[in-house]
C-alpha cells in the first residue's frame, strides 16, 4: 500500500507544532497501525530524519497507552479497538491519513503525538480506590456476596483502560465517561460503599480542576471507547454525585 500521511509534528511542549505531509510505501494490509508507524520511523531514520514520537506499550489492547486521533476519530475508523489493534486493511491504497495527538487542555503534548495523561491519574488518586486492610489478614473479596447484575455492571465499568479516547472524541473535551466508569466500578460493589460519598465528590472536583469540559450527552465517547463503556455510567455518576451532595 502507498499512503500519504499528514502527521502532527511538535518538537517539545513549548513548540507551536504543525501538520507535516509524508509519503510512505510498502505497507501491508495485515500490519497494525503502530507497525505502519514503525516502518515509517525506520524509513525516517534511514533518510536521516527525526522519527515521530508516539505512545504504545502492550500492543494488544489492554494497557490504554496507545492514543492517536486518526482521520478525525480517536483510535481511527474501526469500532471497539485501540490503535494498536487497528489494522491497515481499514484503509485503501492511495489514502491520505491524518494523525494527530489526543487534544485536550488536560492532555498537554509532550512531543509529536505523545500527550501527558497524568490528569487521569490525579482523578484516580482523588478517589478511585477502596481502603482495605492488607496487614496480613486480608479478607477475600469473594466472601462478600454480590448480586450478579451489579457484579456484571461493575466488571464492565472496570474494563476501562484509561486511554482517554472519550476525552479526545468529545466535542466538549469532557472526561465524564472515564470518571463515570471509575465511580461506577466501586459504587456498585459493597466494598466501594464505605467511601462512596467522598469518592464521587472528590473525583468530580479533580476532574473539573483539570479543565475537562462539561458533558452534553452527545454520546461520541461511548461510540469511540475501545472497551464499550456505556453512557449509563455517566448517569450513575450523576446520581451518585447528586445524592453525595445532599449528604455532604
Amino acid at each position: 500500500m502507498k499512503l500519504t500521511l499528514k502527521i502532527w509534528r511538535q518538537k517539545n511542549a513549548q513548540d507551536k507544532g504543525a501538520m507535516v505531509d509524508y509519503k510512505i510505501d510498502g505497507i501491508e494490509p495485515d500490519m497494525s497501525f503502530l507497525e505502519m508507524l514503525d516502518v515509517f520511523n525506520e524509513q525516517q531514520i534511514n533518510a536521516g530524519g527525526d522519527p515521530v514520537a508516539f505512545d504504545h506499550d502492550c500492543r494488544e489492547g489492554i494497557c490504554g497507552m496507545c492514543s492517536l486521533f486518526i482521520n478525525g476519530e480517536a483510535h481511527g475508523p474501526d469500532r471497539g479497538v485501540t490503535t494498536c489493534q487497528l489494522h491497515m486493511r481499514m484503509f485503501k491504497d492511495g489514502d491520505t491519513i491524518t494523525i494527530e495527538p489526543f487534544r485536550s487542555v488536560a492532555f498537554p503534548v509532550v512531543k509529536d503525538l505523545v500527550v501527558n495523561r497524568s490528569s487521569f491519574d490525579r482523578i484516580q488518586h482523588a478517589g478511585g480506590f477502596i481502603s482495605v486492610n492488607t496487614s496480613g489478614n486480608t479478607i477475600d473479596a469473594n466472601t462478600i456476596p454480590v448480586n450478579k447484575v451489579d457484579a456484571d455492571h461493575a466488571f464492565d465499568a472496570a474494563t476501562c483502560i484509561g486511554c482517554g479516547a472519550c476525552v479526545a472524541s468529545c466535542k466538549n473535551g469532557s472526561a465524564m465517561l472515564f470518571v463515570g466508569a471509575k465511580v461506577s466500578q466501586y459504587a456498585l460493589l459493597p466494598q466501594g460503599k464505605i467511601e462512596a460519598t467522598e469518592r464521587v465528590l472528590n473525583m468530580v472536583k479533580q476532574m473539573d480542576e483539570e479543565g475537562f469540559g462539561n458533558c452534553t450527552n452527545t454520546g461520541a465517547c461511548e461510540v469511540e471507547c475501545p472497551k464499550g463503556i456505556s453512557l449509563e455510567n455517566i448517569a450513575r455518576m450523576n446520581r451518585e454525585y447528586l445524592s453525595a451532595s445532599m449528604k455532604g
Binding site: 502532527w8 501538520m19 478525525g72 487534544r103 466535542k171 466538549n172 469532557s174 469540559g213
Partner: peptide, 21 residues
C-alpha cells in the same frame, strides 16, 4: 465557553458525524 476552553488547539480533522448526531 467552558467546553471550548477544554480544547484550546482544535483538530485539523474532526469527524463529529462519525459518532454523534
Amino acid at each position: 465557553i467552558q467546553n471550548n476552553n477544554a480544547r484550546p488547539i482544535s483538530y485539523a480533522s474532526y469527524n463529529g458525524a462519525a459518532n454523534a448526531s
